[in-house]
Design a protein around this nucleic acid. Structure first.
Length: 195
DNA sequence: TGTTGGATCAACT
DNA sequence: GTTGATCCAACAC
């Protein structure tokens, strides 16, 4: 049989952000570093859409920090927060429309041993159950901001995994825009960041 | 040039 | 439920 794995193409990201967010649940985040390949299956994401979404970083207009969100869909937007953590987003939609999907939680799949080594407690099974932890496990920093996700370094992949149930809720950890139900998660997964 | 607070997490009480 | 760790972008001056 032909491989069931295929890298998500540019067109996937150019669609409406809520559709992209929904469809990302169950896809695999893949990062290649040397001869290592790290991967995890996404179980939780959130959409941040346009300058009219008060929780979106683009609500303040275009800045040096958020400019990659104004670019074409299918690029990474990685920012640093709380003095300790990085968060990975996938830019969506057309150029000059700032929108992205925050990758909030995943289930480790490939090279779990490498992810473990990055933690003080390598016996933990909670390696990628939060946005800051995914970047820690994958060693993603602002160095990888603006990376083309249709390239070979960092990308999203469809491995034919079918999510049995995708649920929707309010977004987490924000003070503005809490009226919007723009969080999507696999309710059967033990790795979602919060219930 | 200085101040402030955040799309977090772990370790407390 | 609360707090400390600790950087940097945004904004006020």
């Amino acid at each position: 049989m032909a491989s069931a794995f295929y890298k998500l193409p540019r067109d996937f990201y150019l669609r409406p952000t809520l559709k992209v967010a929904h469809d990302l649940v169950g896809k695999f985040l893949v990062y290649k570093s040397g001869r290592n390949l790290l991967a995890a299956r996404l179980v939780e994401v959130e959409a941040y859409i346009g300058e009219n979404d008060p929780a979106c970083h683009a609500a303040v207009g275009k800045t040096e920090r958020n400019e990659v969100m104004y670019g074409l869909g299918g690029f990474s937007y990685i920012y640093f927060i709380y003095g300790m953590y990085h968060c990975l987003n996938v830019v969506t939609e057309r150029e000059n429309f700032p929108a992205a999907v925050l990758i909030r939680a995943a289930e480790p799949s490939d090279s779990i041993d490498i992810m473990r080594k990055r933690y003080a407690n390598p016996d933990s099974n909670k390696l990628t159950d939060g946005p800051g932890k995914i970047c820690k496990a994958f060693n993603l920093t602002r160095k990888y901001n603006g990376l083309d996700l249709t390239g070979d370094k960092l990308y999203l992949e469809d491995r034919g995994y079918e999510v049995s149930k995708i649920e929707r809720s309010r977004r987490i950890g924000i003070k503005k825009g809490i009226d919007k139900f723009w969080r999507f998660y696999d309710s059967t997964s033990a790795y979602v960041s919060r219930k």
